[in-house]
Design a protein around this nucleic acid. Structure first.
Ligand code: MN
Ligand code: MN
Ligand code: MN
Ligand code: MN
Lengths: 220, 220
DNA sequence: AAAAATAATAAGGAAAACCTAACAATATAA
DNA sequence: TTATATTGTTAGGTTTTCCTTATTATTTTT
């Protein structure tokens, strides 16, 4: 298995563990990687032999500590590049994910650390996701999904947890829902979870699905 | 043929056309790419079918206009990254080649142009090699190999044409022979072309082979 | 609890990019 | 100018990663 292929599989497993829970199913991986389920089965056996994942046939797959460390290394490089592309090159936060995804696999440890230093060791990427530190440690999770916020309470948006869907991010930008924005929940529809949000002067509603990607920290 | 593989072959053909003349021989490619001559033969046939090269069996290979444009695009990206790595991240000019070589293949046109703008549209890389402009045009060649410089004449080093060999570059750095340095040729041995150079206060000799990589522009 | 539907794996095969070994062409030397 | 050495290509294989088409396991429905 080539390094590139291993990295693609491990990253996707991590993303799906967070999105759909662990263990991750073969079919989910096949869908996201756009390969056949048969190919995934085959690859998971090999990744398992390499000690990167725990794989139980017909059940699913999860990362081992070794696999997780590998992914954290890539995540650090990915998010550092996002910061550079966004802050220094002026590429919109909606677009940086894909570009960083290409660069991360071809970045040496030396370049990664020099880049971190150049950027002032940022703690989060343009989407508000934490950047693993030099030793690949992450801070305690602090934000909460906006659905947990009480109506009438002010809060700050800290993170958008779907970084891949650039159309979603453009949509949110149009609503003023971006990391750092001060907002207030006006109403939560008990029927289907649609949330009405005041951002700046404008009041807009978002579906429960979109809301699930918005993390906030209540104002004190 | 994967994009990555095509790019490796085309770049190497271009480098060898400059170093050893055109057409490039199968054996040269095999040596530089560290694959067997048989593999090269096979690949050249495929590149030829794609219209990237002109290939005459038993004779050699050269780039078509299409292949050349592809290489110029990569060269632009490569050298822009070198400038960034050297000037902004502080990575030595001796080391930037390899790092840039990894990044260049995973850089979109958008990132390349934003990067060029961020860097102030530099004309040359840290080794003094010209950076193709946005339309992939290169300036007229202006420097001359140091062997062509008359004894006693002052000149400025404009370029080191071997960017890959980091040991060579470290050696030259130790001698003060770096792009931008003011130097003077003290003596040229007619026997084997060894050249004695004054750089700053120090006077050092370099072999004809090393000298062949040093380009200068005579002081006016 | 059996039948049907869904999901996952196994078997067998293809394409890309490499290899070695045999053969062919070209260059060099006798 | 023939013999020898070098260089290059072709033939036949291997490995990796993907595929399609069974077959098997699990889940859902009746
Ligand atoms: Mn990636
Ligand atoms: Mn991000
Ligand atoms: Mn390269
Ligand atoms: Mn350079």
């Amino acid at each position: 298995m080539s390094r590139q292929t291993i990295e693609e599989y491990l990253e996707t497993i991590k993303t799906l563990e967070e999105m759909e829970g662990s263990p991750v199913r073969t079919s989910s991986l096949a869908r996201v990687l756009t390969v056949s389920p048969a190919s995934v089965s085959e690859m998971l056996q090999r990744l398992s032999e390499k000690g990167m994942v725990r794989y139980t046939p017909y059940s699913g797959v999860s990362l081992t500590e070794k696999g997780l460390q590998q992914v954290l290394k890539l995540t650090r490089r990915h998010r550092l590049w996002e910061v550079f592309l966004n802050r220094h090159l002026g590429i919109g936060w909606e677009e940086v994910y894909d570009e960083a995804c290409n660069l991360e696999h071809n970045t040496s440890g030396m370049v990664a650390e020099k880049l971190a230093n150049y950027l002032g060791n940022p703690a989060v990427c343009p989407h508000g996701s934490p950047i693993p530190d030099e030793n690949l440690r992450l801070p305690e999770k602090s934000g909460t999904p906006i659905a947990n916020l009480e109506t009438g309470k002010k809060a700050k948006i800290t993170r958008i947890t779907n970084e891949i869907n650039s159309e979603l991010l453009h949509y949110l930008t149009g609503l003023g829902i971006v990391p750092g924005a001060e907002i207030e929940v006006i109403e939560k529809a008990s029927f289907d979870g649609t949330i009405t949000i005041k951002a700046g002067e404008s009041i807009k509603a978002v579906s429960a699905e979109v809301a699930s990607f918005i993390e906030v920290e209540p104002a004190n």
